[in-house]
Amino acid sequence: MNTMQSSAQAATAARRGIVIEGRDVGKSFGGGSVIALEGASFSVKAGSFVSLVGPSGCGKSTLLRLIAGLIDRTSGQLTVHGRDVKGPHSDVGMMFQRATLLEWRTAIENVLLPVELQRTVTAADRARATELLAMVGLKDFAFSFPSQLSGGMQQRVALARLLQTGADILLLDEPFGALDEFTRERLNIELMRIVGEVGATTLFVTHNILEAIFLADEVMVMTPRPGRLARMVHVPFARPRTPELTLTPEFNALVAEVRDILGTH
């Protein structure tokens, strides 16, 4: 692809407010023997919250890792901010089901890790880290070590660390999947608030259809192997949303629609 063409593409994408665009993206492992993802075409608008749902093994994590540039696609086109994705880049930050904190670093040192790996930490970085820990509700735990924190608190630290990268695209792979239901619900609501405050574009993988719809502007529904994108379902509800939303008939109509696509009635 020559530069003129790609800068033209970047300009068009920016005009339409699209930050991630995939066309026929495919990924196979083992020289083509395992097809993890096939023909995925989609676009994600700036600042939107997109949930990914689909059965286990349908390629959700694979799609996130492709977008992050951690693995290379085997077919199709994939751009972030209009630029071709090749290799890890600083536009995205990732978060996993496990908090993946470094247990020899305090909470705040963990939050500063992404900065430390890039350059010398400044007073501004430290101030930002303190602010982010306060934002995730851990102001008083800045100097606790991960093993002194509960699972939910560890995920909050991981979220603060993700925000410290300054990335405007957040890729969350079942971030609260290992937590109990109460903690997960609370964190989901806080996540919506924080992501709104920061104005980031978010891709959120989950197994829970209710959660997917409750949080998102768009739900990307994926079908079983070989992973394909079945549909994008638009979620029209206004924000801020409260848990009561899940009791309304409109909400449940959407749940039924997604279940239909997945064939899990």
């Binding site: 890792r65 992050a68 951690l70 890890p88 600083s90 995205v92 930050g93 990732m94 996993f96 496990r98 993946t100 470094l102 020899w104 890790l113 992404p114 790996l117 890039q118 990268t165």
Partner: peptide
Amino acid sequence: PDREELFRSFGASRRQVFTQLRVP
């Protein structure tokens, strides 16, 4: 694998993965 992937997504060099992750 999760942590190594995380380090790569932060743009860590191989050397940093070794000194900051593997050694500790």
